[in-house]
Design a protein around this nucleic acid. Structure first.
Length: 198
DNA sequence: CTACCGATATTCT
DNA sequence: GAATATCGGTAGA
């Protein structure tokens, strides 16, 4: 469907709220997105695409592909590439509600409460079984599918992004209010090691 | 519930 | 050498 690609061919902050309520399906597991974050290009100091590197290269490509990277050297995080070919942008998938294949996800995350199965960008990928090699996957026809909510949510909230030191106040995090799967905002994250200031 | 801390790939200094 | 788009375990209120 070219409809999805049209929706994604815009700057990330514009696309991000539209992705709320969308379904991401992988291998029998379906996730309803409840929390996302927008990342831009050279004008966004908090974005991997602030500078073009081998890792961020895919963010400059055509929309509708998956951008996977390793966070803190350990956790896999997944983004949907947005913007036309040549325009850098991506939307980080931060949290969602498992609507299909809950029993599969439970075996991947034993002991975790259902509403926390995919509440966070790293654990979201673990819940769906997304690994680094999924980087570059076409979300319109591959084993990983993205489908927009036919009725886009009208009640989304916006606020600062999580975990950034750069451009930390830009309100490019979007979520569905009242959803228990949404990660709680941690205000005090100044790491004690290295340096600190406030 | 909150707070600290270690693991560690990619990137930058 | 150090920072970062994080998480889960452990300790304490």
């Amino acid at each position: 469907m070219p409809e999805l690609l049209e929706a994604l061919a815009h700057p990330a902050p514009q696309v991000a709220p539209v992705l709320l309520g969308a379904r991401l399906s992988v291998g029998g597991v379906t996730l309803r997105l409840t929390e996302v974050e927008a990342y831009g290009g050279a004008d966004d100091a908090g974005s991997h695409a602030f500078r073009r590197t081998p890792r961020s290269d895919i963010m400059f490509g055509p929309p509708g592909r998956l951008y996977c990277y390793l966070s803190y050297g350990i956790h896999v995080c997944a983004n949907v590439v947005t913007g036309r070919d040549g325009e850098a942008g991506a939307v980080l998938l931060r949290a969602g509600e498992v609507t299909e294949g809950v029993e599969i996800v439970r075996t991947r995350r034993p002991g975790v409460a259902d509403h926390r199965l995919a509440s966070g960008p790293g654990v979201l990928c673990r819940a769906l079984g997304i690994e680094l090699p999924a980087n570059g996957t076409d979300l319109t026809r591959g084993p990983i599918r993205l489908e927009l909510d036919p009725e886009p949510p009208t009640n989304s909230s916006a606020g600062p992004r999580v975990g950034l030191r750069q451009a930390a106040t830009t309100p490019w995090r979007f979520w569905l209010p009242g959803e228990p799967t949404v990660t709680r905002y941690r205000a005090a994250l100044a790491r004690g090691r290295g340096r600190d200031g406030a």
